[in-house]
């Protein structure tokens, strides 16, 4: 672990009873970073987040924050905030009292309390709702109360569980902007959990892709999007045509694929996004099984000797009907080179 790590997880193993959810996880996060834990449900991302919050005791391994070992520090003394997916606002308290809750426990009262709560509410634009109960607010407003409630505590790390998944498309954009602004203004280290690659790509500085309780790949959104390390990550970020390399040859379900040119010798597989296929020319022949028009693009399902492939071209190009025969190519230079095939 590097010395500059603000938050580090070292050989962290987490379990529910005998079921191991996360095994030997190593991760270090810098101060002020906005990190996404991305993965399908059951991959261990939420479990890892809960252990950082102190809500789950690790079976083994360590968690360090600013160099101090906080593995056994209880959740109420960690300076780690968590915005729950369900927001978890206290239904019997007003918005003001929800935000004041943690400050009161710190012994803050009177004018200082008032100032801090109001400025917290102000930063999420909810000052005029201070006297409402949570049930009288919309989902988006409740989430902003939850955000303010955590942020007034000035946590060292703010954790967010699926922060955008309960919001509709317009609110999502608003909340995304909000979170980025809070992060920019306060410099708080943020970690959020999501199963949505779009959310992770658009919000995070760095993405930790998880699968089966282990880290599959860590990288910037560009790294993850353009250079997935494994077939799983490739599939997760939208590469739909993925083939392993076995014995130096690219392999489809029913036999080898002979590409023009040498294969990269350090790759375990190649993956193409639908956009990366060349349609209309090339050494291979396919038949259009289905076509769809999405406004900006035309998508095709092609029956080919290598199985069904997915291709996408600009909508300005002329359409092909189902049943049409098409030449196509899988250009090696465009393919993502997978280090692992799983």
């Amino acid at each position: 672990m590097s010395d500059s790590a603000f938050l580090s997880l070292e050989k962290l193993t987490l379990a529910y009873g005998d079921t191991v959810a996360v095994k030997d996880l190593d991760l270090s996060i810098q101060k002020g970073e906005l990190v996404a834990f991305l993965g399908p449900s059951g991959c261990g991302k939420t479990t890892t987040m809960r252990s950082i919050a102190g809500l789950l005791k690790p079976k083994s391994g360590r968690i360090r924050l600013e160099g101090a070992d906080i593995t056994h520090v209880s959740a109420n003394k960690r300076s780690v905030g968590l915005v729950f997916q369900s927001y978890a606002l206290f239904p019997h308290l007003t918005v003001f009292e929800n935000v004041a809750f943690g400050l009161r426990l710190k012994g803050i009262s009177g004018a200082e309390l008032e100032v801090r709560v109001v400025s917290g509410l102000n930063s999420v634009g909810l000052t005029k709702f201070a006297n409402r109960k949570p049930a009288e607010l919309s989902g988006g407003q409740q989430q902003r109360v939850a955000l303010a409630r955590s942020m007034v505590m000035e946590p060292k790390v703010l954790l967010l569980d699926e922060p955008l998944s309960n919001l509709d498309a317009r609110l999502r954009l608003e909340m995304r902007t909000e979170l980025q602004r809070v992060q920019r203004d306060t410099g708080v280290t943020m970690i959020f959990v999501t199963h949505d690659q779009g959310e992770a790509l658009s919000l995070a500085d760095r993405i930790v892709v998880m699968l089966n309780g282990a880290i599959e790949q860590i990288g910037t959104p560009e790294d993850i999007y353009n250079s997935p390390a494994s077939a799983f990550v490739a599939d997760f970020v939208g590469f739909e045509n993925i083939f392993p390399i076995e014995n130096g040859r690219l392999r489809a379900g029913n036999g080898p694929i002979e590409l023009a040119g040498p294969l990269p010798h350090d790759a375990a597989g190649l993956a193409w996004r639908p956009r990366m296929l060349t349609l209309g020319s090339g050494p291979f022949q396919g038949t259009v099984r289905g076509a769809s028009f999405s406004g900006s693009a035309r998508e095709y399902l092609l029956d080919t000797p290598f199985g069904t492939l997915k291709a996408e071209v600009d909508a300005a190009l002329p359409a092909h009907c189902a049943g049409a025969a098409l030449a196509f190519d899988l250009p090696i230079e465009k393919a993502a080179k997978l280090k692992r095939f799983n």
Binding site: A53, G54, L55, A75, N76, K77, R78, V80, G81, L82, F84, S86, A88, L89, F90, P91, H92, F101, G102, L105, K106, A146, R149, S150, M153
Partner: peptide
Amino acid sequence: LRSDIEEAAVLLGSSRAGAFFRVVMPN
């Protein structure tokens, strides 16, 4: 009553018992 409000109270600095009296009992 959702049980995550108790965890929320703990993360805001309350003890487990405090969370019971501050957010469970009133509800």
